[in-house]
Design a protein around this nucleic acid. Structure first.
Lengths: 250, 250
DNA sequence: GCGGCTTTCCAACCTAGGTTAAGGTCATCT
DNA sequence: AGATGACCTTAACCTAGGTTGGAAAGCCGC
């Protein structure tokens, strides 16, 4: 199960814009950038650091998170293979959050000029990347809706369904079962609940036959029911390849 | 107190990049776009609509919000004069959220090509706009932290301090008192609490001499104490004109 | 196979915040 | 002046989820 960038990233961007063979070649060239590796629980970059490179995840899961001075932690975003951890953030001088590995992460450390050239030379990729960023922002908004208005079961259900769609879109969850390396503590930190209540709620979902979750894998047993419970609305993922008409002109 | 675009927007962008007289002239030309007006509570644009123009707020407050099928509402962003409501969203074919007026809002309806030309002709403004978007994203992350980890008093305190800084940055709150048109119901919808509990908590903050809030105005009585309570960290607003060094090269 | 991790699971108890319901205040309209 | 409607305020009661403290079960290196 080695994910290479031309698979994950290319597959994802294909959903936003129809890419030419030349575009795909340009994407594959990103693999010439240095590949780095971080262990689970380690940081890719910490709050306050000055971001110097753009990180493109090649394999493994990572998360964006923030701390409060009292120690509480909130995960504000998840990255799966093919996601950029900080496409634009290098513009800002200091980072307002940290990025940490959840499972073992391998990523390409791209110098900013490489992105700038790519966007300049292959405008269609530029459009797709912009689209991708807008989708990230949309996901953030949906998470706000989740934290503000959904209860414990709905929060977990929504997260599970969202990640299922995102992982499937890079071709890693065709059968409804996929790698899901978050611990229950991680889940608690992303849903704004305690680990104990996270556990209680997972038990419920399991007993109701909605999910099947073991150590590092998540199985979606009843996608329809889980989506209904979560009040999941796929619209916010913008996965319906509407970029097509946009790019037709190009 | 008429806010014109060259005041609010120019003043805000000045924080991100040092703009030339020519840049300011270009910004002022945006005022040639049609000016529209919406009444309080009305929508500027509703979920599912196809966004055709970019909205630049000229006066009044607006909010970005999402609904759940069960009727619950979450405000996921606030706009003050000089803010773009949807700078990039027109790229996506359908909106995943709505934008509503809180007070009476007047805004410029800019055709996308106007933005594209502006960014093309005045790259420094382009940089400032990108910076501005990144700050918006950063605010979203901080709001996630708030909803996930801060309690009722901390949530309100943080929101108050944030809005104070944002309003001051456009020159409308020098003395610590400023227009704040959100009702307590609106506040509840942005903090993910009930109106009743919002009221209880406001009473507390008032009695402790931290804020002074009447019908449509908010006074920050003790900024230091309020910031401490909120665990406010101004870093996420990136208001420290760090763009300077970035733009020095240009 | 052993010791020390990390992670999951469980139960008893507690509190922050939700719910419901009723007044109160203020501005506007007639 | 009275009526209307939008907000704000308060009180009594209740529950979803937090807290604390363990125990069991996998997993990892040695």
């Amino acid at each position: 199960m080695t994910m290479t960038i031309d698979h994950a990233l290319g597959r994802k961007l294909e959903r936003f814009a129809r890419l030419s063979e030349e575009d795909h070649r340009a994407l594959r060239r990103l693999r010439e950038a240095p590949l780095r590796e971080v262990e689970p629980r380690a940081d890719l970059i910490a709050e306050g650091d000055e971001p110097a490179v753009v990180r493109l995840s090649e394999s493994g899961w990572a998360c964006r998170y923030k701390h409060l001075p009292n120690g509480r932690r909130q995960i504000v975003g998840l990255f799966v293979p093919g996601d950029f951890c900080d496409l634009n953030v290098y513009i800002l001088r200091h980072l307002d959050h940290s990025i940490g590995a959840i499972s073992k992460v391998r990523y390409y450390a791209l110098p900013p000029h490489m992105i700038e050239e790519l966007v300049h030379d292959r405008p269609r990729i530029g459009k797709a990347l912009l689209w991708n960023e807008l989708v990230q922002a949309s996901i953030q908004r949906e998470w706000l809706l989740t934290l503000g208005q959904r209860n414990a079961r709905e929060r977990l259900a929504n997260l599970f369904v969202e990640m299922f769609h995102r992982v499937r879109s890079i071709g890693l969850a065709g059968d409804g079962k996929f790698e899901f390396p978050l611990t229950q503590t991680d889940l608690a930190d992303t849903t704004g609940m305690t680990p104990v209540h996270t556990n209680r709620t997972i038990q419920e979902l399991r007993q109701e036959g909605l999910i099947d979750m073991d150590r590092r894998h998540l199985g979606i047993c009843d996608l329809a029911a889980l989506s209904r419970l979560a009040m999941f609305n796929a619209g916010y993922l913008h996965l319906d390849r509407e970029g097509e008409t946009l790019d037709a002109a190009n």
